[in-house]
């Protein structure tokens, strides 16, 4: 029983903003929207990203591409591992946010956060192995040295899963950047808070600004601008609504984007991820050179 209410400390709440080019701006549109728990308790206002925010994010992602795709695979692996370290250190915060966002129990949220941390470790280890698994030399019938290597597609747009606010998000973002792509991510519309906190982790993990750009807001409003954007090479439609998927895929066709279709049912994000998502946004480059003296 508290007797002196004036002495109680008022907590400092966080303003949730976008994450673009390594900075945390508000939406240029000035808009926000309220975020609540599944039971309706108000949590915070999130920025409602606009078309202009999406375009700024693409510019930031394009700017970051040369550095990130040109970094050594060893370096990318260390950065991704660093993300896992940072996430581990803030485990309790993410457990609380997942509980709030997904309305799940603390125990289930703990296993979700653990799986998300482990997923970064999984992909951290892949950065310097995928080229050997997905590439190789080709025994052509002639005096040529011929080899194939995987290279990143470029800037990839990701519509993050709507349900799984952290593990689902990590499961779609980590493989894209592990392969050397940069990304523009639209967080779960109703559950964006763990995503913004994850952006804080990324910002303090030596991940160069612009490699991951995170937008919050209405997925259906932002997605068409990304799907039709000429400077985006691929798009993951995971979090697109069933009603909008066809439209987005058609828009993506306009620039021959690589499209990862939305899964037919909600995936089990805790399952072994395999290499499917890692390969999804990689191109194969084949180089020939004559052999001779």
């Amino acid at each position: 029983m508290r007797t002196d209410r004036r002495a109680e400390r008022v907590d400092v709440r966080k303003t949730y903003k976008l994450y673009v080019g390594g900075a945390f701006p508000r939406s240029e549109s000035g808009r926000s929207y309220p975020i609540s728990t599944p039971r309706g308790r108000f949590l915070a206002n999130a920025a409602r990203g606009s078309r202009k925010d999406a375009r700024d994010a693409v510019v930031a992602a394009r700017k970051a591409l040369a550095g990130w795709s040109g970094a050594t695979a060893y370096n990318r692996g260390q950065v991704l591992y660093r993300v896992a370290e940072m996430l581990e250190g803030r485990r309790d915060q993410f457990v609380a946010e997942v509980v709030d966002s997904e309305g799940t129990t603390a125990r289930r949220a703990e296993s979700t956060v653990d799986a998300a941390i482990d997923r970064w470790v999984w992909y951290a280890g892949w950065t310097d192995k995928i080229a050997q698994v997905a590439g190789g030399t080709n025994p052509v019938a002639g005096p040529y040295f011929d080899f194939s290597i995987p290279e990143p597609t470029g800037v990839v747009a990701i519509l993050a899963p709507q349900e799984s606010s952290l593990l689902g998000l990590v499961s779609v973002v980590a493989p894209v950047i592990a392969g050397g792509n940069t990304s523009v991510v639209v967080a779960s519309e109703d559950r964006p808070l763990p995503a913004i906190s994850l952006a804080e982790v990324l910002a303090t993990s030596d991940l160069p600004g612009g490699v991951v750009n995170l937008l919050t807001g209405a997925t259906a409003e932002i997605a068409p601008w990304l799907a039709s954007h000429m400077d985006i090479g691929g798009i993951d439609l995971c979090g697109a609504s069933a009603g909008q998927r066809v439209e987005l895929e058609r828009l993506a066709a306009g620039t021959v984007k690589r499209v990862a279709r939305a899964p037919e049912s909600t995936p089990d994000w805790s399952a072994d991820p395999g290499t499917g998502r890692l390969r999804r946004f990689l191109e194969t480059k084949t180089v020939w050179h004559p052999i001779g003296i």
Binding site: P139, V140, G142, T284, K285, T286, V287, W288
Partner: peptide, 29 residues
């Protein structure tokens, strides 16, 4: 940014060698 790079040669093809495009040249090999 190209799916096949021929160095000191050009227009070589082989069934063992993946061929296909980046960007608007398509996808798949």
């Amino acid at each position: 940014r190209a799916g096949v790079v021929w160095a000191n040669t050009f227009n070589r093809f082989d069934p063992a060698s993946p061929f296909g495009g980046y960007k608007e040249s398509g996808f798949g090999r």
